[in-house]
Design a binder for these strands. Sequence first.
DNA 1: CCTATGACGCCGG
DNA 2: GCCGGCGCCATAG
Length: 106
Amino acid sequence: MSQYQQDIYDIVRLIPKGKVTTYGRIADYLALGSARMVGWAMNKCHLIDATIPAHRVVNRKGELSGRLHFETPTTMQERLEKEGITIQNHCIVDFEKRVWSPEDLE
DNA sequence: CCTATGACGCCGG
DNA sequence: GCCGGCGCCATAG
């Protein structure tokens, strides 16, 4: 597996429970040049490590754009709700209060 | 080598 | 604010 993929997964693993981040923020932090690369990496993350908290990565508007790639179409939402996050129409309620950035690391 | 395909995002109208 | 268009870049065929 390539290094940037490893880096992406490392960041995703650091997202605090109850928080989410975006494809773009991860791409910016790692200077990947393209948020698509993060999406591409997330698409096959379960092949690498099924414990990666992929449900905590959403698009820049707070929509669960990756929900159809989980085991069932509702798995992503269920996992987020279990962490105290509210979802409405496949979108995170109070997204600004729930979003986290790799920059926030100490 | 060239085209198509994204779990994306910015910009202009 | 909602599109459409385009830039982005690894991968597959």
